[in-house]
Design a protein around this nucleic acid. Sequence first.
DNA 1: CGGTACGTTGAGTCATATCAACCATAGTGG
DNA 2: CCACTATGGTTGATATGACTCAACGTACCG
Lengths: 236, 236
Amino acid sequence: MKQQDTHIPLCFKCAFDTGSLFRFLTPEEIDKLNYEKDFRHYKRGDILYQEGNRISGFYCINEGIIKVFKTGFDGKEQIIRFAKPGDIIAYRSVLSNELACTSAKVIEDCQVCFIPSEILISFIKTNSSYALELLKLACHELGEANSFITDIAQKTVRERLAEILLLLVNDFGLDEENYLNISLTREELANIVGTATESVIRLLSEFKTDKLVELSGRKIKLLNKKALEKISNVYS
Amino acid sequence: MKQQDTHIPLCFKCAFDTGSLFRFLTPEEIDKLNYEKDFRHYKRGDILYQEGNRISGFYCINEGIIKVFKTGFDGKEQIIRFAKPGDIIAYRSVLSNELACTSAKVIEDCQVCFIPSEILISFIKTNSSYALELLKLACHELGEANSFITDIAQKTVRERLAEILLLLVNDFGLDEENYLNISLTREELANIVGTATESVIRLLSEFKTDKLVELSGRKIKLLNKKALEKISNVYS
DNA sequence: CGGTACGTTGAGTCATATCAACCATAGTGG
DNA sequence: CCACTATGGTTGATATGACTCAACGTACCG
């Protein structure tokens, strides 16, 4: 991941490569974006922004993975979502004009573009189809949040862990050997599922003895998706 | 609540009375809204729309209270939010162009206006400050959803119940005798908190013996907000 | 007056959290 | 090169919050 020397990616190319929202901008707007953006590198563990702060812009991920989380009153993280190439983060605070309600931390070394709030607002004002796409995005995320709320409130930890594994497959895919394309600590897994680290460990090793997964360190190999779907009750 | 004979409220007046989003429309747009909207009455228990269906428009509440909920795989409701005069519901599905992910049921007899999707979309296209306000609304709700996720994942039922009571105070207020201005069944309370009905009952009666609340049927009187705040850990 | 929906309470059970000990690994600094 | 430390992973023992099940009370309604 030593790519500090690569040149700055063009928004035009990036937007279409990653399928990001910016593909709805006009060529002139993309030029403006290209000109105004601030290209940055971050390493695993780096923090992009922290909850409680005022945010002066948002981030578009070009490379890497970021976790977006909220800190509970006892300091425990709750992971809200992951951002991968093409995703934008922190736009919520910018648009609602509120303080950041989450923090963002790098999981896999990143290249991101920082874009000042004013640019986003101006695009919304001048490009209504872009505004509509942003609305679509926000509303889609709202729907996912609603599902997540219902799941956490009603499902057991076991069900949720199975579901999260499938969700990660969906978001990040599997390699040729069926290993999950994202590597998380047990604690991070626990902070998505909303449980204790030890519970994740125990359940994962249960899944292992049940031949649903194979574990080698942080790599998780999916052996039986169907069975996981059944456990997770994804199809109500 | 027998007001079937009242005349249809003017959007102009309603928008400003309730502080709804529509106050950001131009006079011409409000006229159009007034013309296109479909004014409807609903009684307690009526269902406005149901998850899984395609939605052809959204609702603006003029009078009454509606609960928006999601049904878990075992049929248990999870209440996502309440809508009161000035609020709009179902806009999420309209804008994300997805099937409804929630259902809406009347808690207190309602008067609502149904507005076809096309109107909303056309306003977004022609009135950018309205689009921005909608984005603001969606993003604000996203922030609330994130908090809710973190709370359900990390707090105990006791903490959450205290928090929900305070949240209801915030949303619906107290009457002159400090009674909560919304009346919910124990089951509904449980379906917000994400717990079993019996647990809500037990905890409420604990709160009662601790002189935090007074209970008479569904009416809940708040005796000690400070103590509830302390229990709920709202100020992290 | 039976029926239906809601509320309450008690008893038993279980899933999950908590606490504690231990191991593995890797990075650090003397 | 060897402690030394920090971080993450694992396992076991124990505690307990919350759910489930069941019985019963209450109130309203046609």
